[in-house]
Amino acid sequence: MTKLTAESRRHLRTQAIKSFLRRFLGHNGAWLGLLALAFFLVLAAMPGALVGPLQTAITATGDFLIPPSTQHLLGTDEIGRDVLNLIVHGARTSLTIALVSTVISLIVGITVGMTSGYYGGRIDAWLMRTTDFFFVIPSFVLALVITPVVLEVIGRGGDILGFRPSLFVIILVIGSTSWAFVARIVRSQTLSLRERQFVERARVVGTNDLNIMVHHLLPLLVPQVAANGALVVANAIYTETALSFLGLGDPLQPSWGTLLSLAERAGAASSGAWWYFGAPGLCVLIVSLGFVLVGNALDDTFNPRRRAIP
């Protein structure tokens, strides 16, 4: 009997997943987005196997600033490094920063938003004022303040939790400035969910607040969070690029933003080296567009009646 139950439950779950996929993949945007993301995830997963180790000024293989050719598909930079090599290695850095900081911002945002919406009253007021504070902090200024402090304490060498210090700072800064957006969305959803009668029933049958939040509210928040999470990633990539462009990136682990910054300093735009700034710029555009497309498709799939404008 129990086996039968488990089986039919599994059957129901596969059915639900199938119908979800059918609707999700019905959007052309979802296809485009997923393809773009899959492509860049492959690049990020094995840069060494695809283009060899990251080139430096010493191991540079080409001449200075040569346009794309069969030998260097995307040309070279001002010290002779292959731009394709840099881009592929940059994909790993950029995507790691974007995804890890999104995870941070989702965890913090969901926790704060749900607590705030569920308890209401004074807790809500305090948490939301804190959220407002993080909402309006300009990430650049925060990064400019935090980076030197962290680097002073840790030193440029070594790593924190597997990240080089400056990458870690960027992840922290993006994570701590983008959770406020998630918290607001989660709070507004929680406010309406907690009035639902099954929450009342859960209280009558003796379920404590934590379990109500985890078992009753969280599963119903997933669609909203998933759709908006994709937009948070896109935003994180933009922020990361902008921060690196301002020179906060790590030259030893270049991201696309760092490459753009180097290109700008080398005068790539004025000297006509369009491949040098075009390649990383296009990558940023495609990846963030991919996430936005996936996010919109998710949003459409989960609630076709409400269209969120990113």
Partner: peptide, 28 residues
């Protein structure tokens, strides 16, 4: 214990009947 007017609203749409009936036993 309590029985509610609108049974549809009083049941979490994502929970199975087993989990719903077992919830008070688990929670308490």
């Amino acid at each position: 214990q309590m029985i509610f007017q609108d049974a549809y609203q009083a049941l979490n749409p994502r929970h199975t009947v087993f989990d719903i009936v077992a919830e008070p036993l688990r929670s308490l």
